[in-house]
Design a protein around this nucleic acid. Sequence first.
RNA 1: CGAGAAGUAGCACAGCUUGGUAGUGCACUAGUUUUGGGAACUAGGGGUCGCAGGUUCGAAUCCUGUCUUCUCGACCA
Length: 565
Amino acid sequence: MKLSKSFFFTLREDAKDEESTSGNLLVRSGMIKKIGAGIYMFLPMGLRVLDKIGNIVKEEINNTGAQELLMPSLIPSEYYEKCGRITAFGDDMFSLKDRYNKNHVLGPTHEELFTIAAKSMVKSYKDLPFTLYQQADKFRDEPRPRYGLIRVREFIMKDAYSFDRDEEGLNESYNIMKTAYNNIYKRLGINYKIVKADCGTMGGTLSEEYQAITDIGEDILVLCDKCDYASNIEVSECISNHKDLEKEKTLTKVETSHQETIEDVCKFLNLDLKKSIKALLMNINNELVVFFIRGDRELNINKVSKLFNTKEINFANDDLISSSNAVPGYTGPIDLKAKIVIDREILQMKNFCCGANEEGYHYINANIKDFSYDLVADIVNVKEDDICPNCGGKIYFRKGIEVGNLFKLGTKYASQLGLTYLDENNQEHPVVMGCYGLGLGRVLASIVEQNNDENGLIFSANIAPYQVAIVQIDMKDEKQSEIANQLYENLKSKGFDVILDDREERPGVKFKDMDLIGIPFRITIGKKVNDDLVELKIRKTGVQEDVSVDSIEKKIIKLIEDDLK
RNA sequence: CGAGAAGUAGCACAGCUUGGUAGUGCACUAGUUUUGGGAACUAGGGGUCGCAGGUUCGAAUCCUGUCUUCUCGACCA
């Protein structure tokens, strides 16, 4: 591509409304343009990168034997009603009416339609297994779009769906896809972890996420310093690092007026937070449920949600609280008249502090024998330094961006939508499904988050918009023009992605631009052509060298080919 | 959804406290000089100050409403 005749621009200053590194750099480099919260245009330069990522994904998914198809984004709501996902997604789904007042949605994910597609073909066990996929737009009405391309409302997802006759088949399909995913992220150069995760609105038995490690990640990854345990905090089992061996003391009521939070109370009583329990008054399906957890812990809503099999979990309002004798700020389990759930860690605690259900009073030296409860469960978030549930090692955290996920769906969709097959004995069974997602834009953003410097983006040759840039310094110099154009034509004819910066700009502008958009190799054609020399600069390392005009083509081809390996 | 910040030229901003009819830098056009890391000078073009009401002789500026964007939070027991 010759820049002088191209749609190409960059911004010299940071975008006012892009705070994330990746969002800002992608906007500044003219790859994307925002037109609303979480809604972006992909401009020519950005589309090239997105396509290259998409092609790598496509190649690896095709290698598994999966077949590509294309689903609509505009879908009659009835398809999502059958599996109860209208309520499961709730406000996260965009919905609209057509001119006849019929409800439609913009597809947030496509399990239903793939299941229906599969129904057209599957009759017998002989028709299984197979895997279908698409790369298409998804729409999600996120409560808070943010961080550039990381959390958006419309995005391109590669989503694949496997269809098998049984669990064993699913495991095989799942593992094939997992291998393909490993290849994809390796080729994309992403630093990632695979973690166990929640099945969420998908349903099913197992979910694993591919998480790109970066500080702006929205997910907390729980990792172990000894073994390969890796889990999203949403589902990480909490094993307490603290076993209390004290002898039980006598329960005592103490005055703690105006100490509203557990932190205040413990400070006031000169107690370790770990020697206290706090209450969380929740509204679950319009019933007051009081959760007790150690004072320094956080309630894990996801675990609670599973425990009660509902998503309707909110803090209790004053009306609901007044239906019991709980006193906000002073709620404790002793003689509390409400449904009580305690974290299982409390079973190991001795002589702890808790509210006395009386304004201005707490108990100290409370013990498990002092009260009754309805349920015991693991309901808290893991903390760093807790014990690895796998090997007893020490837990540490990393932040991650979910760039892909694998789900074992099981028979949920097949059963509800009637996707069945007949086995050898003429018995009918639901098909066993898996689904596998990967967001292309989010992958791009993650790559940028992990690969940038003060000069801009840093891409490797397999995803850079162009593999090499030829920068001609003096546009009026005939010798420079001749060498630049010849090299450009030669590389182009050999199938390389090459950009010729033939703009009437000062050298500094051209250098800055090529750096900003992350071109991995730059060849500068300047004064030194009179000594038969051009200059080669490598974006990633900043290394720069003079190369003879005769050997530059060979050299650059080798560099690109090495980088593509 | 809660809290905070912001909306003035293509981009980034100043002006607003104390109302008097809009400015700076970059970008753009023309010219001159420059030419290896975002050039300098000269002369230009470009804005119903997010939108709608209100106060006023007069509103970017004050008041009310509304829309949009960003950030933080959604763990108060």
